[in-house]
Every structure is written in C-alpha cells, then in structure tokens.
Design a protein around this nucleic acid. Structure first.
Lengths: 192, 192
DNA sequence: CCAAAAGTGTGACCTATATCACACTTTTTT
DNA sequence: AAAAAAGTGTGATATAGGTCACACTTTTGG
C-alpha cells in the first residue's frame, strides 16, 4: 500500500482528481509496464498505434519525416508526459509519426480498449483525460503562436526556459528540428 | 419537440454520443443564445473570459497582437466550431487573445460554471468534451506539422482544401495572418 | 450616393536563414 | 584501444519571403 501511495502515476492523476487506493489499483491494472532501450521505436510511421504511453523516466521524441527525408520534431516526452500519435490511436488508423527513445526509458502503456473501458467505468478518469487534453490543447496553441509570432531567437529562448534540462541532454540538431530552424542557424543563435 | 430534434447543437453532440430529448433539453438550458454584430468582440485581450462559444452561424477570428502591432490569427471559427481562449477560460485568468466577429454571428455561450456543472452531472457530456478536445489536439498538431514542414505554397493549398468557402468570404490579409506569411507574399502565391 | 476606409496587386529592395562544405570533437561500437 | 559514427562550429553562397511604396478597386457608413 505504501508503494501504491507513492506511485508516480497516482501523483500525476491526483493533481487533478483524488483517488482511493482501490480506485488507483483498478486504474493501474489497465496499464502495462515496459522498459525500453535507447534507439527503440515505440510507434512507427505507417503502422497501427495500439497504445498511449505515459513516461516514467527517459526521453522520447515524436517526429515526422517529410518528403525530402528531413526530420521534424513534434514533441519531446520526458517524465510525466503522455505521448502517442493520437490521431492514429483514437481512429485506429496508421501512424504518420514515429516515436523513438532517445534514452533508455520506462513507460506505462495504455491500450485504446483499456482506456475506453476505464473511462466508461470511472467518470473520474474520463474527467481526468478531458482536463489533460484541454491542457495539451492550450500548450499546442502556444506553440503555434510562437511559430507564427516569434523570431528563431525568441523561440530558442522560450525553449530554454521551458525545458532547461533538455538543452544539454539531447543533441542540438533535434532541438533545431523542434524549433523549425536548421542546425547551423541554431548554432549561430547561441554563439551570441 | 420537433424543434429540439433538429437543433444544430444536438446534431453536433450526437455525432459523438446519443441523447434523449430530456438529456438535450437539460444540456441546452445551460447555454445562452446571443446574436452578435459584425466587428463585435466577444473576447478581449487582458480581460477575463467567462464563456466558451459555439458558433451557429457567421465567422469569428481568434487573434493575437504582437509587440510590433502585427496580427496573428490562431483560428477561424464558423458553424459548428467551438472557440474561446481556453487557457484563460479554464484557469480564470486574463486573455492573451482577442476574438472578433468578421460577420454577423449567432452563438451559444457556455459559462465555465455551467460547463463544469454539466460535466459533473452527466458523464456523457464529460465524455463528449473529452472527445472534442482530443480532436482539437490532433488538429493543432497537424497545423504545427504544416508550419514546420510546409512551404507557404503548400500551406496555402492545404488551407484552400480545408476551408474552401473562407477563401472568398474573408479578406486575404487575414488568411495571410493565419498562414504566417505577409499579405504580399500570399498575393504572389496564387498569381501562379 | 458620395467620401472615407479597407482591401488588393505589383515592383524594388533587403535580410534572415537555408544549404553546402569542411574541420574538429565527442560518443558509440567492436 | 582503435575505428566508425554521430555531433558541432563556422565560412561562403543562394534564396524565399519580408518590408516599403504606390496605384487601383471594392466596401462601408453617414
């Protein structure tokens, strides 16, 4: 029980709605724990996406390869983030994105069936996911705003502030691919 | 009752979950109908945002004014769209965006209190908003992808496909402000 | 119905950033 | 520990698209 109370997922959910031990036990039973090696793919473009991933530790990137073979990063996911190709996951279609471990990772996976079952059984969980999704929506809107409004310098500074740990944790070229500038331009940005 | 059955909001909700007449009647009672004049603001930057808006008819734009006074458009909202500054609305803080009628509009407004009440009372509604929010999240991700990946020509073509009616319904400069290019560049794009 | 405001197209110029190339450093693999 | 692979900084160009300017057209409001 002491274990249960300290579970990181429980803490995460209880930021939004409180749970009894049995609530949480029931919820957790719908997830599967997985350890992933560096460079492992958890979602591949053109394949189905049965799972959503909640990151316990490590760092993943969700990216898209364009017709010129160039990589564009949609999001990084570290501890406490949810990540999957939600379009493909919800609609049970093939993925347009890849999701890839940049470090060894621990994740909890949640299948669509289990998610919908959980949501149907427990109003609390449906509510939790609504709130999460709302927050995600707001975050994406801010990113769009910064792509429309900001110069690359401003976007770089914002990134720095938002993910201070990532800067020295992952190769710069991925940060460039997230910000939408070339590796070289990014390098020139912070040599000032 | 025949009126109720045909209500556009009911159709909209029933794309996701079916409702009894009394369900819908109860839901609708939490909304307020408003007619808006062209050029009217429904959300102003730096003010609180008590309502979410569901558009029956007309066209609104949600935009941001940057430090140089330049306008950036986050989203257009026409029939069946939901629009508000969700960050400010959910967190009861002041808005960073403006929302403005580009045409005379009819909308249904939903206060945060009523929304949370509805969601608490009816699991179906919570579920509906979760699904909507998920879909919105996916749409924003696609927009980010197109900002990161596409040339302006590609973004313009995508816009054309996605909102064929808007092209000749609203001034081009707003389309430019949505796509993230200058009015002049946009003009040159389609003179080919 | 007319004046003022808003919208639109096009030329001339300028700037931020992409691209290519290469040398050097750090990390990974065997 | 050596070889291979990946990451990084910096110079030389090339270019998409921004900005400014102006003429013309359409819409709006009194």
């Amino acid at each position: 029980m002491s274990d249960l109370a300290d579970h990181p997922l429980r803490k995460h959910i209880e930021e939004i709605t409180s749970l009894s031990d049995s609530d949480f036990e029931y919820i957790l039973s719908h997830f599967k724990y997985r350890q992933l090696k560096k460079h492992q793919y958890v979602v591949q473009a053109d394949e189905y996406v049965p799972n959503d991933f909640w990151v316990i530790s490590g760092c993943l990137k969700q990216f898209f390869i364009d017709k010129n073979g160039k990589e564009h990063i949609i999001q990084f996911a570290t501890s406490n983030w949810w990540v999957t190709d939600y379009d493909a996951y919800y609609n049970q279609t093939k993925s347009t994105f890849n999701i890839h471990c940049m470090e060894p990772c621990e994740v909890l996976t949640l299948s669509l069936t289990n998610r919908e079952k959980l949501c149907a059984d427990m109003h609390k969980v449906d509510h939790f996911f609504r709130r999460k999704s709302n927050a995600g929506y707001v975050a994406l809107q801010k990113r769009i705003l910064s792509l429309l409004t900001g110069t690359s310098t401003e976007r770089y500074e914002k990134f720095n502030k938002m993910y201070p740990d990532l800067i020295n944790r992952i190769p710069k070229k991925y940060i460039a691919a997230y910000l939408g500038v070339s590796r070289e331009t990014l390098s020139r940005l912070y040599s000032k």
